[in-house]
């Protein structure tokens, strides 16, 4: 399979997670670290249900719901108990690590030979697995941005967007910004868990360690998309997140395949990702300082 195809496929699957990160970081301006816990939560819940004989689509649905509960929990910690956003997310993440082990009963749950949404699609359409993988990932990711695009134009959606922008104004116009933060984090982490469940079905296993660095990968996708496409509308911004995710996955695949020539190994991946995010975060401030000095 070509590296481009693989990048797009993974980019779309992990793109659902990046969309969740976009919602918490960009729409709500909430630095939500619980995604490192809700991504493997989705994988754990989805995989456990499939092993128990559930339909893979239903397993995805339950995984979304589980992630939403996790996100709402972070939201409640941050708003009702006034715990700092970062800390609230870390607490949820740590709790989920233990919880995920409980759910799976062991650190790693293989799904080889089990039904998955990809296999169902291949059987149903009578198409090869490679096509089915792509078709399922694309329809879920595009469906998600279409639904989000519609959501962000509804009254609730406008209130969600305004919450990250000006919570005082949201409050003055009769909506509790705290409620909006909880709702937004539920939605964001639902997407992240959905992505985790999908990644487990795609990769053929669920693992408690799956979530480490999710937040940085998500941020990298969001930032890469923003820098390259400079989106002006919400729909474009959502599309840019998916594009950024595909590029990010592509970069990883390239680094893994050809990086060994320069001594690069898989274990360096997180360092590299974090450096990319760091660079993207620092560059605007640095440029500003240059302009200010000049």
């Amino acid at each position: 399979m070509s590296i481009v195809m693989a990048a797009v496929e993974q980019g779309l699957i992990y793109g659902l997670m990046a969309l969740g990160v976009y919602i918490s970081f960009r729409i709500l301006s909430f630095p939500d670290l619980s995604v490192d816990g809700t991504f493997p939560l989705g994988a754990a819940v989805g995989a456990t249900l499939i092993v128990a004989g559930w339909n893979p689509y239903a397993a995805l649905g339950v995984a979304f719901a589980a992630g939403a509960v996790g996100g709402a929990f972070t939201g409640v910690l941050a708003t009702k108990f006034r715990i700092q956003g970062l800390l609230a997310g870390v607490l949820t993440m740590i709790m989920l690590y233990s919880l995920n082990l409980r759910i799976m009963g062991r650190p790693n749950l293989p799904l080889l030979g089990r039904p998955s949404v990809f296999r169902l699609a291949a059987q149903w359409g009578g198409i090869p697995m490679a096509w089915a993988n792509f078709a399922v990932a694309a329809s879920l990711a595009l469906g998600a941005i279409l639904l989000l695009h519609l959501l962000f134009r509804t009254e609730i959606g406008l209130a969600l967007r305004a919450t990250g922008d000006n919570p005082g104004m949201v409050r003055a116009y009769g909506t509790s910004p705290e409620g909006m933060v909880i709702l937004g984090l539920a939605l964001a982490n639902g997407l992240v868990a959905l992505s985790g469940a999908l990644a487990a079905q795609h990769g053929g296993f669920a693992d408690v360690g799956l979530g480490v660095g999710t937040i940085v990968a998500g941020l990298a996708s969001v930032i890469v998309g923003e820098i390259l496409l400079r989106p002006r509308s919400i729909l474009w911004a959502l599309g840019a997140v998916l594009a950024g995710s595909c590029l990010y996955r592509g970069a990883i695949l390239v680094a893994l395949r050809y990086g060994s020539a320069v001594g690069f190994t898989a274990s360096d991946l997180r360092l590299l990702t974090a450096l990319v995010v760091l660079g993207a975060l620092v560059a605007p401030a640095w440029r500003l300082r240059q302009e200010g000095a000049g």
């Binding site: 959501l151 509804t154 009254e155 609730i156 406008l158 209130a159 305004a162 104004m169 949201v170 116009y173 009769g174 909506t175």
Partner: peptide, 11 residues
């Protein structure tokens, strides 16, 4: 649009 209807937000 946000200002013209206060309170409970719908879909």
């Amino acid at each position: 649009a946000l200002a013209s209807r206060k309170g409970r937000r719908g879909l």
